[in-house]
Structures are given as C-alpha cells and as structure tokens.
C-alpha cells in the first residue's frame, strides 16, 4: 500500500496535521480522523450542503475536497463559529426562533449563513433563500431558518452600526 500523505493545515484557527490517503475526502478526515463530527455527510455528491465548510474563506462541500488538497489551507467548520462560550448571533437566533428540528442540516446551514452575512450583512429574504439553496433541510420548510438569518443580520447590524 502506498505511503500516506502528510498534510499541514489550519482548522478553526488551530494548526493541525494529519496523515491521509489520496482518495480520502476532507469530510472523511474531519469526521473519522479528527473527530470533528459537526460536519455531516448527507449525500457525498455536493447536493445537500450538510458538509459545508469554508476553505480559505470560501464555502465548499467537504465531501468534494480531497483531504490532500488541504495542505497549507485554512478550514472553518461549525465547531469554529462560536467564540469560546459566546454563541454567534446566528446560533442564538436559530435557537430562539426554532430554526431547527432534527438539526442534522443545521451545522451546514450555519456555516453557509455566516458566509452570507460576512459578505452581505443586510440580505433580503430572496438573497437569503438563494444563498442557502445549497443546504437542503427536510424538516422546517425553511421558513424559520430564513427568518432566523434575517433577524441575525439585524442583530449583527445593531451591534456594529
């Protein structure tokens, strides 16, 4: 069997090193090797968004990234959204407004919603819906998810006018 590749990367701001085989996806390594199981597998083909992460600041489906590609890159997962004990306003609004039912799509939705608000702090409902179109949710019908994102945007805007 071929030797494993050594990969140095940054995960949620912390330097991390791991060994992997080329066919291993970043999702598999995050979940099975690094025990960062907040990132979920819903489809493995980039169609559901449950494994949404950021890679050098841009959104990606971790199921469609080879772990070896992460060499020298910076990865963000749901585990890195809260700062210490302080929840991100999106996390707070998701809780307050019951924007999750089963909760399995929630990590991906939060990572995608945060990327949206970082880029567009005051999105319209339409913009939220299109920005989150890559995150399937089968429980909520999206209503409360969209409202929570819009309300989080207002709260963030209020914090830093």
């Amino acid at each position: 069997m071929a030797r494993k590749s050594h990969v140095s990367t940054i995960v949620n701001g912390e330097p991390i090193e791991f060994l992997c085989d080329p066919p291993q996806t970043l999702l598999e390594v995050l979940r099975e090797e690094l025990q960062l199981t907040g990132t979920k597998e819903g489809c493995g083909t980039g169609d559901c968004g449950a494994c949404t992460i950021t890679l050098d600041g841009r959104l990606a489906c971790a199921c469609l990234v080879l772990a070896v590609e992460a060499e020298g890159r910076s990865i963000g997962t749901v585990e890195g959204i809260a700062s210490g004990e302080h929840l991100h306003p999106l996390q707070k609004k998701f809780l307050e407004e019951a924007a999750l039912q089963c909760g399995v799509c929630t990590p991906g939705l939060l990572v995608a919603a945060k990327a949206l608000l970082d880029r567009n702090p005051q999105p319209t409902e339409q913009e939220v819906r299109y920005a989150l179109a890559g995150n399937l949710c089968r429980c909520t019908g999206y209503d409360k998810v969209v409202r929570a994102v819009l309300d989080a945007a207002v709260e963030i805007g209020g914090e830093s006018p």
């Binding site: 979940r31 960062l36 199981t37 907040g38 990132t39 979920k40 597998e41 997962t77 749901v78 585990e79 959204i81 809260a82 929840l87 996390q91 998701f94 809780l95 307050e96 019951a98 999750l100 909760g103 399995v104 929630t106 990590p107 939060l110």
Partner: peptide, 18 residues
Amino acid sequence: IRHDGLDKVTGRARFGAD
C-alpha cells in the same frame, strides 16, 4: 429554547454516523 439546541448549533450533537 430547546434543551438539546445548544449541542445542535455548535456541532456537538452526535448523530448516527458520529
């Protein structure tokens, strides 16, 4: 706020494959 909510917005909640 649901009691299991915090774990579900921080990625700690453990599902079948976790």
